[in-house]
Design a protein around this nucleic acid. Sequence first.
DNA 1: GGATTGACATCCC
DNA 2: CGGGATGCCAATC
Length: 103
Amino acid sequence: MSESFTDIVVKVIKKIPKGKVATYGQIAALSGSPRAARQVVRILHTQSKKEKLPWHRIINSKGEIALREFEGLEEQRELLEKEGIVVKNKNAIDLKIYQWHPK
DNA sequence: GGATTGACATCCC
DNA sequence: CGGGATGCCAATC
C-alpha cells in the first residue's frame, strides 16, 4: 500500500523514456524530495539487483556519467549510445539535448 | 535502533 | 579554475 520513497523513485526511473537521461537530483525532486539525490544513488544499487532498471539513464547534474572507468563507465556509455545518445569525451552528455523533461 | 552508506549538489576558498 | 568541505536524506546494515 503505502509507497516508500524507494518505490516512488523506482516508478519515476521507469518513466524515463528511451533516448533521454535524467539527473539524480531531478529524480529525487520528481519523487518528492529534491535533496535526496544521494538516496537515489543508493536505490539504484539495491533495486537494480532486485529488478531491472534503466539505471544508465541517470547521470549527474553536470551531464556526465558519474561512474569511474573501473566502476562500469564503459558499460553505461555503451547502453546510452545504443539508445541514440551521443556521449562525448567518454562520459559527457549534452543535457540541453538529452535531458528528460517530464510534464 | 543507531551508524553507515552513496554513481549527488553546491557552496567556499 | 579546481579541489575540498559541507549539507542532505532515507534505506540498509
